[in-house]
C-alpha cells in the first residue's frame, strides 16, 4: 500500500486544488483533509500545508492556524518522523508552530515570515529558488539532484524571513537554509529576493530534515502551460519546472 498524503485545508486556505493536482500527477496517493475532519489526520503518512490565508492571517500569517487542532496531529506526525511540507501560508504556519527550524519548543517560533520589504505589500511575481543544502540533507529534496533551480511564483504579503542575529546564525550553522532565491541563470545575489528576505531565504528545514517550509509556490509553475518561457510546440499539459520538486517529495515516500 502506497504512502497516503494529506493536503490540509484550514478555513481560509486557497491553494489546495493545485497542490492536490500536482501531487497526484506526480504519482502521490493524495487526499484533501478539511478542518472538520481533523481526527482522520493520524492515519496519513505525510502532510502538505498549502497556501492561502488560514484564519485570515489574523495576528500574523500562520499564527492562529499553528494552534488549530489539525496542527496537533501534524506536530505529532512530524515528531514521529513523518514528512511535512508547508508552502507559502503553510510555511508560515510551520514556523509559527515551531516545527521549523525546530530549535526551540513547539509553538515558540524563533523566526517568522513577516511583512515584505522594502514596502510591506502583497507581491506576486515569478521567481526561481535554488537548493542551498546537500540534497540528501532532507528526505524530500533527495530526488532533486545536484544544484537544482526550481521555478515558482511568490505571492504573499508576509514572505520576508526575519529573525534575530543569533537565530539567523543558528539557521546557518544548523544547515537549515534549504532554499534561497536565485536568478533565472542560477546566480544568487541580493536582488534575487523579491522581498528582502534575510540571507535570501526562500525555504527552511528542521534539524531532522523531515519538515520543510517553502515560501514560493512551485505548484503554480508545475505544468508547461504555467511557465512563462515555454517553448513553442511544447506539450502544454506535461508537468514541468516546479513539478520536479513534488516528484522528489512523492519519491521520498516510496
Amino acid at each position: 500500500m502506497s504512502a497516503r498524503i494529506a493536503v490540509l485545508v484550514f478555513p481560509g486556505t486557497n491553494s489546495e486544488d493545485e497542490t492536490f493536482r500536482i501531487l497526484r500527477d506526480c504519482g502521490g496517493d493524495v487526499h484533501l483533509v478539511h478542518w472538520s475532519h481533523a481526527q482522520t489526520l493520524p492515519t496519513f503518512d505525510a502532510y502538505v500545508l498549502p497556501g492561502g490565508f488560514a484564519y485570515e492571517d489574523r495576528i500574523r500569517a500562520g499564527a492562529i492556524a499553528a494552534h488549530d487542532a489539525m496542527m496537533d496531529h501534524v506536530i505529532a506526525g512530524a515528531q514521529a518522523g513523518k514528512l511535512v511540507l508547508g508552502i507559502c501560508n503553510g510555511a508560515q504556519i510551520l514556523l509559527e508552530a515551531g516545527l521549523v527550524p525546530g530549535t526551540a519548543a513547539i509553538r515558540r517560533p524563533t523566526a517568522a515570515f513577516t511583512g515584505n520589504g522594502p514596502v510591506p505589500h502583497f507581491v506576486c511575481t515569478h521567481v526561481y529558488v535554488k537548493l542551498a543544502i546537500d540534497p540528501a540533507r532532507c528526505a524530500m529534496t533527495a530526488g532533486l539532484g545536484h544544484d537544482p533551480l526550481i521555478p515558482a511564483w511568490t505571492a504573499n504579503g508576509e514572505g520576508r524571513l526575519a529573525a534575530s542575529k543569533e537565530h539567523l546564525q543558528e539557521l546557518e550553522d544548523g544547515d537549515h537554509i534549504a532554499f534561497v532565491y536565485a536568478h533565472e541563470d542560477g546566480s544568487v545575489d541580493d536582488s534575487a529576493s523579491p522581498n528582502q528576505s534575510a540571507l535570501g531565504i526562500a525555504g527552511l528545514c528542521n534539524r531532522e530534515g523531515n519538515v520543510l517550509a517553502l515560501m514560493p509556490h512551485p505548484e503554480r509553475d508545475a505544468w508547461t502551460l504555467n511557465h512563462p518561457d515555454r517553448r513553442r510546440g511544447a506539450a502544454m499539459l506535461a508537468p514541468s519546472g516546479g513539478a520536479v520538486f513534488f516528484r522528489s517529495f512523492v519519491g521520498a515516500l516510496q
Binding site: 491553494s15 486544488d17 506576486c124 503554480r220 502544454m236
Partner: peptide, 15 residues
Amino acid sequence: YRRYDSVVRGCTVIP
C-alpha cells in the same frame, strides 16, 4: 498589478 495574485489556482497561462 503585482499586488494582485495572478496565478492562484495553478491554471494561469498568461498572467
